[in-house]
Amino acid sequence: MKSTKVIHWILVCLLFSFSTISVVLGAEKTTHSWGYEGDNNPSQWGRLSAEYETCAMGLFQSPIHLTPSNLIRQDGKIETHYQPTPLVINNNGHTIQINYEPGSYAMINGKKYELKQFHFHTPSEHSLNGKKSDMELHLVHQNEKGNIAVIGVFIEAGKANSTVTTIWNHLSETEGIQEVKEQIINASDFIANNASYFHYQGSLTTPPCSENVIWNVMREPLEASRQQIDQFMKLYPMNARPIQEHNNRLVELIINQSS
């Protein structure tokens, strides 16, 4: 009986690994249908497939509540080394995702992670001081060992964002990938180096909800206009996973002297 359970968990782990790579690299579809409402809403993700079991059984799931009362450190930092890339928009049925060319990376607490893609959620998935923002941007990275690190940025209504404008100008209601090669964007427009951020260990916020994801959520928000936010919401009125149990995780607020 024990050997059977061991084999089962080995197979599950292999499925998690494959699914995680697919999500990070921007696969258009996952194996099983999931969503944010109806019968396949987040409360049901863990029951849809064996490869999604971590969504229900995981102890270090994301997103979570964040608060400045967390442990404060001053010995960490994020440095982004993002290059311009041709605009490739993937409307994957769950969000608007921008796939990134190889060669751009972030140094997160001294470790190198290559930028693979970024995408958007509304409202924000994480909350700060019990309050959610209008949207949240996730810049998804992966290192040579396959480990994932995400930089999260809150988005609040304010001034229009020029990079968001460029992307939104090419949005389509039709699912699929659009290559706008004549249009160049740069993810460095979204994030300031050496900004203060919350650092913790969590998971992907979409199936398969794989854990051991290093989260780095910027303390200061990005601005986008109300019109830009509403334009996204016409396609995806709500695509945020609910807040998950904290389970006494260590969450650090890394404050840099320059921020």
Rank of each mutant, 00 (worst) to 15 (best):
P221H: 02
E101M: 14
N143R: 05
F60Y: 10
C209P: 05
H65K: 10
I72W: 10
G130E: 05
H246L: 12
N169K: 13
R219C: 11
N169H: 11
T4C: 10
T122R: 11
V140I: 08
K5R: 14
M233T: 07
N212W: 04
I10K: 12
E182F: 14
P208A: 07
E252V: 03
I214T: 02
E175Q: 14
P63S: 03
L137R: 08
Q183D: 09
R249C: 00
S33P: 08
N91D: 06
L66E: 01
N143I: 02
N248Q: 09
L71Q: 15
A240M: 01
K5F: 07
P68L: 07
G46Q: 01
H138I: 03
N256L: 09
Q244L: 01
N147W: 01
E179R: 15
S19Y: 00
H32V: 04
V164P: 01
P102C: 11
P207N: 12
R47C: 15
S104N: 09
L59F: 15
K112M: 05
N169C: 15
G146S: 10
P242T: 03
P242R: 02
S124F: 02
A187K: 01
Q142P: 02
H126E: 05
I10D: 07
T206W: 03
P123K: 09
A106M: 04
N212R: 14
